[in-house]
Design a protein around this nucleic acid. Structure first.
Lengths: 208, 208
DNA sequence: GTCTATACGCAGATAGAC
DNA sequence: GTCTATCTGCGTATAGAC
């Protein structure tokens, strides 16, 4: 359905702006509740003009989901690739995921909320990517279990879901104008995921 | 906008079924993408007939959000009310929240995903309830900090968001036909939230 | 690449018979 | 409480001028 080449940089400017604005509106009101009219108005265009840039409205949603998923997957894989220590890989993954997700919050939130409104065909494509990425996360966690730094009494898949839940929900409540930077938040996620919120029973005896 | 009395039990059966079916469809396709036609078809009615039970389509969404929030809030408050130990209150809250949310997964997921599509007026009402409930959770966590069983180096509001993120995201991926019961999941949430996924550094020295 | 004009269908909602 | 019939508007998408 989509054959845009992203090789060239400059001539695609309008298309990028379109995606950015669409992501903001979709996140705010939902995909189906956002009309091509609203979209055009925000861009200072007539609604007919949109169809010079896209084939149909759904293409916007598809591109947004694609963009968000690819972005986060590539960022995370690139970040953890040169690292071998399992614990460092996990911490790096959490930081890269958090920062990338918040860097493009509208697209990421839309991808999470509105992917159910894609056509069956597009939905499968997106779901495949999603599952692949989940597998990457799960593998990092599994390696931590093997290395003895993450508990083995819970299935890696469960732990993956817990971690992704915590990080992904952030896209819904995080306000960039608040006090916490994405990096601060990443620190908190790392601590919360690994140590939990409970006070350690025995940290009065620090190890050498 | 809504003046239904929920005092009587039996005569409201159709209305309940309507809400149940609506919640399922809304969750599946989104509120705006679900037509009154689909709704009517699933109920074996003509679309005109729906308007004997509701004033407008949005009323369904409003009632679903209301229902889900009230249900969970009442269940949690009732569960923790007789308990005084802060840690027990937190663990009880997690269990009540998890089980109640999964008991009516469609409504709960719809309330989380589609509340943005409510009219401004209805949205405020729902948000107030939501904030109130968040306050209840936060207070339980704060009490745990005061009692020294939850770390104080993270703000109670942050911890509340982490906990709710983990629990609420469940509504999106949990499958009732899987192996985990809601109770199992609650156990995992309690452990994950308090102890984290990391292996304790010193549990070779159990306390008496 | 943007405009105007328009096709076409389906959405939500109402009225009145049964 | 459900049906049929119908109103009305707005939705997505297209065509052709500039």
């Amino acid at each position: 359905m989509v054959k845009k080449d992203v090789t060239s940089d400059k001539p695609e400017r309008t298309a990028e702006k379109l995606l950015r604005v669409a992501a903001r509106l979709f996140r705010q009101h939902g995909y189906a509740a956002t009309s091509t009219q609203q979209l055009a108005t925000e861009l200072g265009l007539q609604k007919g003009s949109l169809y010079h840039h896209i084939e149909k409205k759904e293409e916007l949603l598809y591109l947004i989901c694609m963009d968000a998923l690819m972005h986060i997957q590539l960022a995370v894989e690139k970040a953890i690739e040169p690292i071998s220590d399992p614990g460092d890989r996990l911490r790096t993954l959490i930081r890269a995921h958090t920062c990338t997700a918040l860097d493009d919050q509208d697209k990421f939130a839309t991808a999470l909320l509105d992917n159910r409104e894609l056509s069956d065909e597009n939905k499968s494509t997106i779901m495949e990517l999603h599952d692949y990425y989940e597998g990457v996360v799960q593998e990092v966690i599994r390696a931590c279990q093997e290395a003895g730094i993450v508990r083995r009494d819970t299935a890696p898949r469960q732990l993956t879901l817990f971690l992704l839940s915590m990080m992904n929900f952030t896209a819904f409540w995080y306000r960039p104008d608040g006090k916490l930077t994405p990096d601060d938040l990443a620190d908190q996620f790392i601590q919360q995921f690994l140590q939990g919120a409970g006070v350690p029973l025995c940290d009065d005896a620090p190890h050498p």
